[in-house]
Simulated scan of single mutants.
Amino acid sequence: MKNIAISRRAFNSVALLAAAGLGAPSVWSQGKLEKTKVSIAVGGKAAFYYLPLTISEQLGYFKAEGLDVEISDFAGGSRALQALVGGSADVVSGAYEHTINMQSKNQYIESFVLMGRAPQIAMGVSTKAMPGYRDVADLRGKKIGVSAPGSSTNMVANLVLSRAGLKPSDVSFVGVGTAAGALTALRSGQIDAMSNTDPVMTMLEQKGEVKIISDTRTLKGTQEVFGGPMPAACFYAHAEFVQKNPNTCQALANAIVHGLKWLQTAGPSDIIKTVPESYLLGDRALYLASFNKVREAISLDGILPEEGTRTALKALASFDPSVKADKIVLSKTYTNDFARRAKERFKA
């Protein structure tokens, strides 16, 4: 009887473990997470630029991977990067080009899953402040709103200015965030032009408040501005963190790719039901119009194209003298190992 009791107890334990494995397949199959509590910094979470992060959070995909994520929202990507450098964040949901910028400063950070395959940033001039606008040269001496100085919205503005022969010092950049504050800054005349993400830019455009002069919200527009594919939002961390926490990074990549897979078939009503009400900025119809405009810019599978890394380096080196193209080792700015495994698992 004793042996039967032991074997029954053993059987029950195995059955419970098997059930747990079914409930959390990623944790079960990829080994123990080195870190279950992960702090993530993001700059402007309400923007469509970071929609995959919000979807994965709201639908519980991080929890399904055994992760307890704490997301801190900052005014712009450069602030989120500062949180990583300062040690208050483990991972950043931010622009891929920051990995290149940081390597030029001898700091190695690595992207490990892609969320956006186009920057989704548009630049426009205020029709009220600059009714007679003719070309980019007219921006000399003007105030340009960006999410935060040093962020990717600033980078796109710098690129547009440089092609017209203007330097960043020829204008004044003003940090306005990526939500209601950005709308207020333009409407109240605090800025003359703005480089920002959606839904903000579509809302201003549809009401005739800005004239768009550069647009990377579509793959075609991105090709025209950058001359190639330009990777955008991704998860990045110190290379050392990625190396020491492979199972944790895999779980993070899994959650994002799961969200990307969901987004491939999600309808407008699904998006409205999933994102926080405050993200709609008081106008559901315009929010959905914005989503339709940027939908193709969202990554399908989390994999960063090698050609895109070259596009990003060329763009940065064209206006930032501190980025020396011949000194940057692009293979150290990203890895697709985690995204490939996640893609295979979710058939993304």
Rank of each mutant, 00 (worst) to 15 (best):
G150S: 04
S162V: 02
K143Q: 11
S162M: 00
R163Q: 14
D138R: 02
R140P: 03
A148G: 00
G145V: 06
S151P: 05
L161F: 02
V146P: 00
M155L: 02
S147Y: 00
A164W: 11
S152K: 03
K143S: 06
D138L: 09
V146Q: 10
P149S: 03
R140H: 01
K142M: 15
M155Q: 10
R163K: 15
T153I: 01
G165I: 04
S152Y: 05
D138K: 02
P149D: 05
V160S: 14
I144Q: 08
A137P: 02
N158E: 13
S151N: 01
A164Y: 09
A129N: 12
M130Q: 12
D138Y: 12
Y133M: 03
V146I: 02
S152H: 10
R134Q: 15
Y133D: 02
R163M: 06
Y133K: 05
M155H: 08
S147F: 00
G141K: 07
G132S: 06
A137T: 13
N154G: 05
G141T: 09
L159K: 09
S152F: 02
K143L: 10
V136M: 05
I144T: 14
G141A: 10
P149I: 07
L139N: 15
S151C: 01
V146M: 04
L159V: 09
V156F: 10
N154F: 13
G145T: 10
T153V: 02
N158G: 03
A137E: 12
K142G: 09
R163H: 14
A157V: 03
M155T: 11
A129R: 11
G141S: 07
K142F: 12
N158M: 07
R163F: 07
N158Q: 12
N158R: 07
Y133T: 01
I144L: 03
V160N: 07
V160I: 12
L161H: 11
I144D: 15
R134E: 14
G165L: 03
K143F: 12
R140C: 05
G141L: 02
A148P: 00
L139I: 06
R134I: 14
M130H: 09
K142C: 13
L161K: 03
A129K: 11
P131M: 15
N154D: 08
L159P: 06
A164D: 09
G145P: 06
T153N: 01
N158Y: 02
R163A: 13
V156R: 08
S162G: 06
P131V: 14
S147M: 03
L161R: 06
L139T: 14
G165M: 05
G165P: 01
P149R: 11
G150T: 02
A157L: 10
G165C: 06
N158L: 02
G145S: 14
I144N: 11
A137Y: 04
N158C: 14
S152E: 11
D138G: 08
V136E: 11
G132T: 15
S151A: 05
M155C: 06
V146G: 08
L139C: 15
V160A: 11
V160W: 04
R140W: 03
G141N: 10
A164K: 01
D138C: 08
N154Y: 14
T153A: 04
S162F: 12
